[in-house]
Amino acid sequence: MGKERNREDLQWVQAVLQGDTRAFGYLADRYKDFVYTLSFSLLKQREEAEDAAQDAFVKAFRNLSGFRQDAKFSTWLYRIAYNECITRLRKRKTTLPVADGWDEQHLTEKTEADEMPWHEREEQYRRLHGAIGELSETDRLLVVLYYFERLPVEEISAITGWGISNVKTKLFRVRKKLYDKLLRLSGEMPSLKGENKR
């Protein structure tokens, strides 16, 4: 599945390099949610996250000729998005608190799919993103890459530039940190529905 997906990505990249700009739209559709999630987790503001995600895709388009096609396109794109977010964070003078802009549409879709009461869904969302928001930039990045996007440690290492053992060590620490924060916020881990996809 992963290899097939990467093969398709490379085909679209080739099409763009040969002049078919529309092919880039397929790549954007495939990865927009992830890039947006990554941006939002780091920047904590929806509008800025959207701007950062757009800028990341535009940079990827401009530099597509420099993409080494022996690597995964997704890893390369995520690296660009991460660098874009870090640049924006460095330019900020103050640290923002967790944005209170939870996504109504997103929660509506999830609630209808899982038959979970709206208020429970909202509570879960707030608690989780509240805990994530208290983490450092590095920890938030790890959480997004590992838990939201379900990337293997090797790919996280390629995106961040950290060694594999370093990623594992950081994951161990952030897992404990996040778990403790969630306990502090709720007293116990919130009840769940949904499958464990790992």
Binding site: D33, T37, F40, K110, Q124, H129, Y147, L182, G194
Partner: peptide, 9 residues
């Protein structure tokens, strides 16, 4: 928990 909440769109 993360599966339940889901990623952003």
């Amino acid at each position: 928990l993360f599966s339940s909440v889901g990623a952003e769109h």
